[in-house]
Amino acid sequence: MLFIKTNSTMRAPSLLAVLIVLVLFSLQPDAAAASRVHHHRFGREKLTTLHFYLHDTLSGKDPTAVLVAHGANATSRPGDPTPFGSVYATDDVLTEGPERASRVVGSAQGLYVSSGKDGRLSLVMGMDFEFSDYNGSSFVVFSRNPVTVEHRELAVVGGRGKFRMARGFAVLRTHYLDTGNGDAIIEYNVTLLHY
């Protein structure tokens, strides 16, 4: 039996104190076992960098981004194709170079919301970037995109296939933006850590 010494006398601890100590010790993970399972199940962590261009087209007969909801009290700048509160569904083309005729490397599907109420174009994006060169593997971005900032960084929050459990970041630069119709070509430099 466990005894606690107080003022040179010994007494039995309360049952509650013993139970708390036992529970706390049982909650401690076995670091060696966790490491073995982690290593065997997923292998070694890899680093992959990707460079591509996203073509987001709101205009024309075959747009890749379509308005699906409009904020009830949307405020916008004159001629703004993406007023505050607007939600767009996307199926954007990803290419090797900035020209639309360059080799297609994948697609980006998801949603973005126009979130810049203060007059600056800003989006919150949730998109899945899938790549044909990686057997349909993808990574996911969920982040704020301040479109008017020259170089901006978005968070990579997950992935699947060859990019399983991806985390990292994407540095974006606007290659082309038509402020009249919202069409854009965005350069992506992505750094992924994944299994």
Results as ranks from 00 to 15, higher is better:
Leu121Cys: 00
Ala108Trp: 14
Pro98Ala: 13
Gly119Ala: 06
Phe131Leu: 15
Thr64Gly: 09
Arg100Trp: 10
Asp128Ile: 06
Ser115Tyr: 05
Thr82Asp: 04
Ala69Glu: 04
Asn73Lys: 12
Thr75Ser: 09
Ser86Ile: 04
Ser122Thr: 11
Gly110His: 08
Arg120Asn: 14
Gly110Asn: 03
Ala69Met: 11
Arg77Leu: 15
Lys117Asn: 12
Val93Ala: 06
Val68Gln: 07
Gly85Ile: 00
Ser86Phe: 08
Tyr88Ile: 00
Ala101Arg: 12
Phe84Trp: 10
Ser115Val: 10
Lys117Gln: 13
Val66Gly: 05
Met127Trp: 00
Ala101Ile: 14
Gly106Cys: 08
Ser76Met: 09
Thr95Ile: 08
Glu99Phe: 08
Glu99Met: 08
Arg120Phe: 08
Val105Phe: 07
Val93Lys: 05
Gly71Cys: 12
Gly79Asp: 13
Glu99Cys: 03
Gly126Glu: 02
Thr95Asp: 00
Gly79Lys: 01
Pro81Glu: 12
Tyr88Val: 00
Gly71Ile: 10
Gly119Thr: 08
Leu111Val: 14
His70Val: 02
Ser122Gly: 13
Val113Gly: 11
Met125Ala: 10
Pro98Tyr: 04
Asp128Arg: 15
Val87Gln: 02
Gly106Ser: 07
Tyr112Cys: 00
Ala89Lys: 00
Leu94Val: 03
Pro81Ser: 12
Gly79Arg: 05
Lys117Phe: 11
Pro78Ser: 13
Ser102Gly: 14
His70Phe: 04
Lys61Ile: 02
